[in-house]
Each structure stands twice: as C-alpha cells, then as structure tokens.
C-alpha cells in the first residue's frame, strides 16, 4: 500500500541540478520525467493496476440517486418524445399515423437542413476554438492569487452570467451600421466596415463572436479550476531544471490541463451544436437563411410549421450527432492521456 506521500517521493528524482556541460539535454530529460511522474502518480487506472485498493471499489448504489433523478426527468422524456419522430403528428390534432422513417429521410434530404447543418458545424468549430483559446489565455493570465486577479476573473466571467437574449439585444446595437464597432473601424482606418449581422457572409461570424464572448467565461472557470489542481512542485521542478516559460507551458501546464480541456471542449462544442438563443435574439436565422442552425430549424418545424413529428425526428438525429461528437472528444482526450 502506498502512502499519501508517494507522489512527492516520485517527484523528487527529477530535480536535476543544471550542469555546466550544457543545459538542453538535461532539461529535456528532466521535463519528460516531470511529465511522466505527474501522469503515473495520478492516473487512477494505473494506480489501481499497480496494486491500489482494488477491493475497495464503490458499489452501484452510490450511483443510484444521481442516475435515478436523471432517468426520470431527462432520459424518460427524451425516449418518450422519440415516439413522435415516427408519426405524422402536426402537434395539434387528436389523431396521427405512423409513417416509419419518412420524417428521418425527409430531414436528411432537405436542402435547408443542409444549410443549417453547415452553419451549425461552422459555429461549433468557431465557438469551441475561440472560447477555449481565449479562456486559456485569460485563465493563465489570472491564475495567480491576488485581489486584482479576483476582480478581473469576476469581470471576465460576467458575460457568461448575462442571459443570451439580452446579450443578443445589446450586440445588435454594437454591430449596427452606426454603432461603436463601425466607429472603431473608421478610427483604425480599416476601410469600409463589414455589414456584421446584416450581411449574409458576415452574420454567422458575428453571431459566433457573441457566443465566444459568452462561452469563454465558462472555459476560463473550468481551466482555472484545472490550473488550481496542478501541483506547484511540478512547476518548481521544471523551473529548477531550467525550463523556460514557454517550455513549462508546453510540457507541464498544457498536458496537465487536459482533463479540464476535455470538459471545456465538450461543453463549448455542445453549446455550438445546439446554438439557438443568440440566433433568435439577433437574426432569427437571417438575413435570408445565412444563420439558420439545426436548433432554430428544429424549433420552427416543431412549433411554428405544424411539423411536430418532423421536428422530433430532427431532435433524434441531433441527439445522435451531439452524443457522437462529445463521446469522440472524450475518447480522444482520454486516449492521449493513457498513451503518454
């Protein structure tokens, strides 16, 4: 049985003093050791395999409260609603018929749904990358414990605390033709200002920017929590090894942030795939069909076009898509970790 101090014992050997014969090889070895030490000591499966308390595994009854409530109020409604996806119910009538897979075929062959699909993918990639890069930068800049940083953290989180409908309303004015962004454009001599929400080509990027503005607050909180969980001694060890700022970021911080990134990426990706509120509050899918997303289409079909069965078929397909993408992301993040 290992003692709780095993991790520190493991970390010790990597504190190689810089030698006069040249730093780089030592740095390289040292850093790899830091990384390996960090991984082996904290990875639960490996710990179990190495003779951890294999007999002491939690029983299923611990999972019951969480799974129970979730099953009743999330899983059951999701399954129950899938029933309508195989009917032609318009959402109002007392009667409906089973139509088999007709709704699914119809969703997959619709041209407008293809537009909505590409828009959604574009938004998802944009939001996931944008929010995480921005969130990481802010988290790194503000990770030190100081009053100044606490205030700034709060401020960077504020946009996330703003409801999307309100964010959409404010940004409509910020983007408007005589709005502040236009003035900035003129001030910086950037030429003619873009049309932002009014232009078919720029409306989607403009909405993505609003979403990044909001989601980056969430990413920052998750990554800050991840940074707090990193053992300071690993940083210290790497520093003693002579690792520079960027090397420490590359070899210590980023690999150890992987679990936080896994959550943050899944969260921002799901936000992108289900993007709805901001679109409704700004363009409602326009101009033309430039910002239609899968979620706006789902809503319009189910609640405005009398196509409830059709909308539910879309919901099922979206569910499969989102589940597939997020499971794949978790798998990738896990695999990388296990391989290292």
């Amino acid at each position: 049985m290992r003692s709780p101090t095993a991790r520190q014992d493991e970390a010790k050997p990597v504190r190689v003093e810089p030698t006069s014969t040249g730093r780089s090889p030592v740095v390289g070895i040292g850093l790899r050791r830091v990384r390996d030490a960090a991984r082996t000591s904290v990875h639960p499966r490996r710990a179990l395999r190495n003779g951890g308390a294999t007999a002491q595994r939690p029983g299923f009854r611990l999972a019951l409260p969480g799974l129970g409530l979730y099953s009743v109020f999330v899983a059951y409604p999701a399954v129950a609603t899938a029933y309508y996806a195989f009917t032609n119910w318009n959402g109002l009538a007392q009667h409906w018929h089973f139509v088999g897979l007709k709704n699914f075929v119809s969703v997959l062959s619709s041209g407008l749904e293809r537009t909505a699909f590409t828009n959604t993918l574009e938004a998802t990639v944009g939001i996931a990358l944008g929010a995480n890069i921005l969130g990481l930068a802010i988290a790194l800049l503000l990770q030190k414990r100081s009053r100044f940083n606490y205030v700034l953290r709060l401020l960077w989180f504020l946009p996330a605390a703003l409801p999307s409908i309100v964010a959409g309303y404010i940004w409509t004015f910020i983007y408007s033709p005589s709005g502040p962004l236009d003035k900035v454009w003129v001030l910086l001599h950037l030429g003619a200002a873009p049309g932002f929400l009014g232009s078919p080509n720029e409306a989607l990027p403009s909405i993505i920017a609003i979403a990044i503005w909001q989601v980056s607050g969430y990413a920052m909180v998750l990554l800050l929590a991840g940074l707090q969980a990193i053992d300071e001694q690993l940083h210290e060890a790497a520093r003693v090894d002579g690792a520079g700022v960027l090397q420490r970021l590359r070899f210590v911080t980023l690999p150890l942030l992987r679990p936080a990134f896994a959550v943050s990426f899944v969260f921002s990706t799901v936000t992108g795939l289900l993007l709805f509120d901001v679109v409704v509050a700004t363009t409602n899918g326009g101009p033309g069909y430039a910002t239609e997303t899968l979620a706006t289409q789902l809503y319009k079909q189910s609640f405005e076009y009398n196509n409830f069965g059709w909308g539910m078929a879309m919901g099922v397909l979206m569910g499969i898509l989102v589940l597939g993408v997020s499971a794949a992301m978790l798998w990738i993040f896990n695999r990388k970790e296990a391989r290292a």
């Binding site: 639960p44 499966r45 179990l48 595994r57 939690p58 299923f60 999972a63 969480g66 799974l67 979730y70 999330v74 899983a75 059951y76 409604p77 999701a78 129950a80 609603t81 309508y84 899944v266 799901v270 289900l274 709805f276 979620a295 789902l298 809503y299 189910s302 609640f303 909308g311 539910m312 879309m314 919901g315 099922v316 979206m318 569910g319 499969i320 898509l321 989102v322 589940l323 997020s326 499971a327 978790l330």
Partner: peptide, 28 residues
C-alpha cells in the same frame, strides 16, 4: 473509481443527456 463496463455504460448514458435539445423533451 469503479472503472468497469457498467460504469462506462453509466457514463455514456449520462452523457446522452447533454445531447438532446430541450424543445424536443418538452411535451413528455
């Protein structure tokens, strides 16, 4: 900590809750 197959199934089952858009679960 359980780490067995049942636990993986539980994880996937719970993850599915992220996936289905809210309006489609509304009526039930």
């Amino acid at each position: 900590r359980r780490g067995n197959r049942l636990a993986s199934v539980a994880l996937l089952y719970v993850m599915a809750g992220l996936a289905f858009p809210a309006p489609s679960r509304l009526l039930p």
